[in-house]
């Protein structure tokens, strides 16, 4: 376990610079007998404001790559820089604060908390900031308005359709105004109509707020709507 703390200044968008920079990143999963390489010598730079999609067959390392960008997995080798900061320690409170302020996550299976209302789900990232309850509520409702779900604030996740759930998840991802959104197959569990809706919201966020978005997808059609496409195969970049 490394105890060094990353020194991170927050909410500073390096204009025109790289928002995400991976240099020679590799990830190996080790058991007692075998070592599996999930990522090899990955070099990837995502400029601020870019909407990047990552494609590749199952098991090619897409999710691992996304997890490393999201600081929820530690690379075995190489360096990761986010928002102009090189990340060094992975276990401190500073990394949690950095995730809280700089990153938003969207998952294929939504991962909403069923026991909490929509608005309570959305305010979750703000719970870990110093902020008054009324301010949290205001920002959460604002985020819900952005995804067009203002009228569902007091509903519960199991009262919503899949597309609506994903919109709640997007609201949760943007409520803290992060610089980077990481989306792991956000349309994977949705039909094409709902998928398009979600995609439109993400495109609009990217355009209006300038949020850098990295999206893993299986869907060529969705990938084509983004600025750039990176293909992975067997843990390596092929395009």
């Amino acid at each position: 376990m490394t105890t060094s703390q990353p020194t991170i200044s927050t909410n500073q968008t390096p204009a025109g610079n790289a928002m995400i920079e991976l240099t020679n990143v590799g990830k190996a999963y080790r058991t007692d007998t075998i070592e599996t390489l999930a990522l090899q010598k990955m070099n990837l730079t995502v400029p601020s404001g870019e909407f990047l999609s990552i494609m590749g067959p199952s098991g090619c390392g897409k999710s691992t790559l996304l997890n490393i960008m999201g600081l929820i997995d530690e690379p075995s080798e190489g360096t990761v820089s986010l928002a102009g900061q090189r990340i060094e320690g992975y276990n401190g409170n500073a990394i949690a604060r950095f995730r809280n302020e700089q990153l938003g996550f969207i998952f294929q299976s939504f991962h909403l908390i069923n026991d909490l209302s929509v608005v309570d789900n959305v305010e979750l990232p703000l719970l870990y900031r110093r902020m008054s309850g009324s301010e949290r509520k205001r920002l959460s409702l604002e985020a819900l308005a952005r995804v067009g779900l203002s009228n569902r604030a007091t509903h519960f996740p199991n009262q919503l359709s899949g597309g609506q759930k994903q919109r709640v998840a997007i609201a949760r991802a943007i409520v803290g105004k992060p610089n980077i959104i990481l989306a792991d197959e956000p349309t994977g569990n949705l039909d094409s109509h709902m998928g398009d809706e979600i995609m439109d919201i993400l495109l609009k966020l990217n355009e209006e707020l300038g949020t850098t978005i990295v999206m893993v997808t299986h869907d060529e059609r969705m990938a084509k709507k983004t600025h750039r496409l990176v293909r992975l195969s067997d843990g390596e970049r092929v395009s």
Partner: peptide, 10 residues
């Protein structure tokens, strides 16, 4: 718990 941690819970 994982979601909470992803969104910044210590």
């Amino acid at each position: 718990i994982a979601v909470r941690k992803a969104f910044g819970a210590n």
